[in-house]
Design a binder for these strands. Structure first.
Lengths: 224, 224
DNA sequence: CTCCTGTATTTTGTATACATTCTCATTAAT
DNA sequence: ATTAATGAGAATGTATACAAAATACAGGAG
């Protein structure tokens, strides 16, 4: 493997955090592949730091479910089976429904406006056809909702769950046939939130995640 | 503060894990109080290890939400406001409903029998009046359900959420007036699972968590 | 040829040393 | 008296050294 791993040394953060973010990115982008060993000395020399921040970063990755460590054998990038993915998506569905329900209760006029902007940005990104841009606009749309849910712990958990699927999300969004449905669903969520029709938004979000589940599962099966 | 912190040195585990469990216990039992600083050198000398395993344990506590660290200022035991508690309980409610719904789909005859045993143990523990025993029996009852949900990630998350409230749970269970309702609800959950009546069990669990929320919130308010 | 074993190497686990930052009290100036 | 400057001490951040375990590999026995 060539040396794609480089730190953002600019930020004034403890190295453990910089290493943590660097490794997380690398894992989520697939630069570090599932099952690949995370060897402290190797990573330390590649990133130009000592083992100490590497070890602490690995402990954090472990708790986030992105790495698995066996005592005295070391850590490796967590593998994700289809079953794991199903499990995650079930949780995500439940929490997404909760989040949008809470957002429906709490959303202010301003937050609604912001969501509208995010909605339009998403539609615009779809027209651009740039997958990376679409992914980002999608994240922003959902983040607007999460923010309105006014439950930081929930936001953290949802972001974590989203990350766990990041590897598949890019593939997922390359599939142009889903774009019309995505737009429609986002539009529906926005409308529902505007009308404060909790039942409706929860229903749409439910389908939204289910559709994702179906497509992502297809992707995984193809990969095997 | 007297020296209650001692390691279970017996187990053959990396020290970071032993330290992690020791500190977690201490936090959940209230021996380390919210806001109390977690100083590496102090903890290291109290536990008779070096700073390295302490630091790694703190990183793990941080990701579990039991500690908060500010860069270059150190870590302290996480505080929990009433709002935080509400937030956690909302999440827990959603995930508990999910878990019992999944359990309803998946539960085997044997698992149902095991749940019955847990149910009876719980009733027995109530008669004994020993709060510690009640807490344990309650955990076992819910664990039986979680297990049947067949979703390890979900189980991990629920256990984590449960832990976050542990400090208040003991107080909660000292309140004898809730015992009849607890028994009734547990009975109802068991019956529902036996009949595979998903709607009913989700409904009961929903109330189950809501009741808990009310009482726990009272406890917090009293403490202030 | 296969399997076992012992040794060398690698890797993780733990402790410690050094560097940097922060805290806090003391002191001086206004 | 209050506030700002300063310096000692303490705490965290990082690197490195040493210990112990796991792994890989070579050589020999069967």
């Amino acid at each position: 493997m060539t040396d794609k791993l480089v730190l953002n040394t600019n930020a004034y953060l403890p190295l453990r955090d910089v290493v943590f973010h660097t490794l997380r990115e690398a894992i989520l982008k697939g630069e570090l592949k599932p099952g690949e060993r995370l060897m402290e000395l190797q990573l330390a020399s590649r990133l130009g730091v000592s083992r100490t921040p590497i070890r602490e970063a690995i402990r954090m990755l472990e708790l986030e479910g992105l790495a698995v460590t066996m005592p005295r054998k070391g850590a490796e990038v967590a593998k994700m089976t289809e079953k794991d993915m199903e499990d995650v998506l079930k949780i995500r569905k439940a929490l997404d429904e909760l989040a949008v329900g809470l957002a429906c209760d709490n959303m202010t006029e301003e937050e609604l406006k912001q969501l509208y902007v995010a909605l339009k940005n998403f539609e615009e990104s779809i027209r651009s056809g740039d997958v990376k841009q679409i992914a980002q606009a999608d994240v922003e749309f959902h983040d607007s909702i999460y923010q309105a849910a006014d439950n930081p712990k929930l936001v953290t958990m949802l972001n974590n769950l989203r990350e766990q699927m990041y590897r598949y999300r890019v593939e997922y969004l390359k599939n142009e046939s889903i774009y019309p449905r995505l737009i429609e669903e986002h539009q529906g969520i926005y409308d529902g939130l505007k009308r404060k029709d909790k039942e409706a938004v929860v229903e749409i979000v439910s389908h939204h995640v289910e559709n994702q589940e179906i497509v992502v599962k297809n992707i995984i099966q193809e990969q095997e």
